[in-house]
């Protein structure tokens, strides 16, 4: 049957889609939210806030020993020196990977994650299998990420919470002596700052 309205007919909206639309529509009618502000919030997290921020923190720590000291003593303040602060990054702790210690971050209860430095968490970080397994079998988890650590490396797993968020300071890869801070930051992966990746030598 022909319709006189112009929208494209794909599949009908799912129940979840309808619930979200209904909520937004009712709240908007009441003047409690502004749909255009939602566009802006979403765009900010899609384009401006992400792991490139954390990578800059890491590269600076590799190049500037005084900054690294500040980062390991008061991470929140040191990170905000680079302009990264705010929601879900109010209280930060940076844990350093060394020759003998490897750190991994999780939120077993939900999805706590340092938004200002890493953006929004990946799907696997928020999903049940990672949250369940990493505290019990971190080496098994690392294998799923294709990472094998020496037998004698101590693995520390940090369980984030609503107040406190962790960022891993990965080991600087071998063979990067001549690189600038900016070039170094391009080597730092999101997963290395969660602790499920190890940066390969160059």
């Amino acid at each position: 049957m022909p319709h006189d309205h112009p929208h494209a007919h794909n599949k009908p909206l799912s129940d979840v889609e309808l619930r979200v639309k209904a909520l937004e529509s009712v709240l908007s009618d009441k003047g409690l939210i502004d749909p255009e502000a939602i566009d802006l919030i979403v765009e900010t997290y899609e384009t401006k806030i992400g792991p490139r921020n954390g990578a800059r923190v890491v590269a600076k720590a590799w190049c500037d020993p005084a900054y690294k000291d500040r980062l390991l003593t008061d991470a929140t303040a040191a990170i905000s020196e680079l302009g990264f602060s705010g929601v879900q990054g109010e209280d930060m702790v940076v844990v350093e990977n060394t020759e003998t210690v490897h750190n991994i971050v999780v939120c077993t209860l939900c999805s706590c994650y340092p938004w200002p430095t890493l953006g929004l968490p990946p799907v696997w970080y928020r999903a049940a299998p990672y949250r369940a397994k990493v505290v019990k079998d971190p080496r098994g988890v690392l294998e799923e990420f294709g990472v094998t650590l020496p037998e004698d490396t101590e693995i520390r797993v940090w369980d984030s919470n609503a107040e406190l968020r962790y960022l891993v300071l990965p080991k600087r890869p071998a063979g990067t002596d001549g690189l600038t801070e900016e070039q170094l930051s391009e080597l730092v992966t999101r997963d290395a700052m969660i602790g499920t990746d190890v940066l390969a030598a160059r």
């Binding site: 909520l23 997290y45 696997w124 999903a127 990420f145 499920t196």
Partner: peptide
């Protein structure tokens, strides 16, 4: 934390921030 039998992690290296438009709206809400 510590629960067994929940299956593989299936990590993906690169993925979009949101999978669907409704997830975008939900986050913004």
């Amino acid at each position: 934390g510590g629960m067994d039998g929940l299956g593989p992690i299936n990590p993906v290296k690169e993925e979009p921030c949101f999978k669907d438009e409704w997830e975008r709206r939900m986050f913004g809400l």
